[in-house]
Design a protein around this nucleic acid. Sequence first.
DNA 1: TAGTCATCGATTCGAA
DNA 2: TTCGAATCGATGACTA
Length: 107
Amino acid sequence: PSSMLEVIAMTSEIDTLDLTSRVKDVLQFHNLGQKLFGEAVLGLSQGSVSELLSKPKPWHMLSIKGREPFIKMHLWLSDPQNIDRLKHYQSQIKGRCDSSQCKWCLS
DNA sequence: TAGTCATCGATTCGAA
DNA sequence: TTCGAATCGATGACTA
């Protein structure tokens, strides 16, 4: 296996429907769009993210490559700082981070 | 080398 | 009218 994601893809099993439903909930709750999420977390375009979130294929129907975005989503969901990171990424894309106390900017 | 899969990106749709 | 989400044809990477 060439990447860490491939290792996880072969060893674990993910309920893609449950996973995507939880991701959508979190994103909507914080008003974060598919384009932002795709760029910052998955490395995919908005259209791709839309297809993954609205019609996720069951785990056993996916190739190793196809499982990678879902693994990234799973890792992102378990990251306690996921929202903070995303919002900071968002603020850097457009204007600028307005908080002088921002912990991401300090480092 | 033909068929499948994941992704792209332009376009369309829908809500505010 | 603008922004985020959904659709869908085109395309490159794989694979049998």
